[in-house]
Simulated assay, not measured.
Amino acid sequence: MRYVALLRGVNVSGKNKLPMALLREALKATPFCDATTYIQSGNIVFNADLDITTCEQIIADLLKAEFDLNVPVIVREQSAIKDILKVNPFETRTIENSKFMSFGFFDKIPVTEKIDEVMSFSTEIETFKIVDDVMYFYCGVGFGKTKMTNAWFEKKLGVTSTMRNYNTTTKLVSL
């Protein structure tokens, strides 16, 4: 199975620094095959004959043991991410300006009451849709200006989340 691992909160420098070259080297000690990373924001694409939960645990344990990092790891089948792109409810807007489109990947499905509450913040300019454990977020004001950050969604929905922009998400299905 081809998987994509999304690491929450790793950076090129500063807090939670994780050099991707060192991560790729460390991944060689795992049962994963053909592991590669994409850009410095914590994206791993790999093959494994394991279930998602086991893959998440292996990566989390590796990050703690090798890099002293305790960061959330969300793993999805690569084909599932491809499907997410196919059903993007904001595809027309995305085609017009993909820099305003991102996807939130949650560790679990938020409870309906919290989804209903957070949906009241959706506007024409900052609009989002939550389907199961994925959020489609078209942020017309730009991600640097919105108050609806990843941390904001996590707090409101009671989930762990990591966001990826449209271009990164698209690239992760092609690797």
Score class of each variant (00 low, 15 high):
M1G: 12
M1A: 14
R2M: 09
R2V: 06
R2E: 13
Y3K: 00
Y3H: 01
A5Y: 04
A5W: 04
G9S: 14
G9R: 05
G9T: 11
N11Y: 09
V12N: 03
V12C: 05
S13V: 08
K15D: 06
N16E: 10
N16C: 09
N16H: 15
K17G: 02
K17F: 03
P19D: 04
L22I: 08
L23I: 02
L23V: 03
L23P: 03
L23H: 02
R24V: 10
E25Q: 15
L27M: 04
L27G: 01
K28H: 00
T30A: 14
F32G: 04
F32C: 09
C33S: 15
C33T: 12
D34H: 15
D34A: 15
D34S: 14
T36R: 14
T36C: 10
T37L: 02
T37A: 02
S41C: 03
G42Q: 07
V45R: 11
V45T: 14
F46E: 01
N47L: 12
L50S: 13
L50M: 14
D51I: 13
I52A: 04
I52G: 03
T54M: 11
T54C: 09
C55V: 05
I59M: 01
I59K: 05
I59Q: 03
A60R: 12
A60E: 12
D61G: 05
E66A: 13
E66R: 13
L69H: 06
N70V: 13
N70E: 12
V73L: 11
V75P: 01
V75N: 01
E77R: 13
S79E: 14
I81H: 08
K82F: 08
I84K: 02
I84N: 10
L85E: 01
L85N: 00
F90S: 02
F90E: 00
T94Q: 07
E96N: 13
F103K: 03
G104L: 10
G104T: 07
F106V: 01
D107Q: 00
D107G: 08
K108M: 07
V111S: 04
I115E: 06
V118L: 07
M119C: 13
S120L: 15
F121Y: 15
T123N: 08
T123R: 07
E124R: 11
E124N: 08
E124L: 12
E124I: 15
I125W: 01
E126F: 04
F128G: 05
I130D: 01
V131G: 00
V134S: 00
V134P: 00
Y136P: 02
F137H: 08
Y138T: 00
G142M: 04
F143A: 09
G144I: 05
G144E: 14
K145R: 14
T146G: 05
T146V: 10
T146C: 06
K147N: 09
K147P: 03
M148H: 10
A151F: 10
W152G: 07
W152E: 09
F153M: 06
K155G: 10
K156L: 14
S161G: 15
T162A: 06
R164T: 10
N165R: 08
T170D: 00
T170L: 15
K171G: 05
K171S: 12
L172Y: 07
S174N: 09
S174E: 11
L175C: 10
L175H: 11
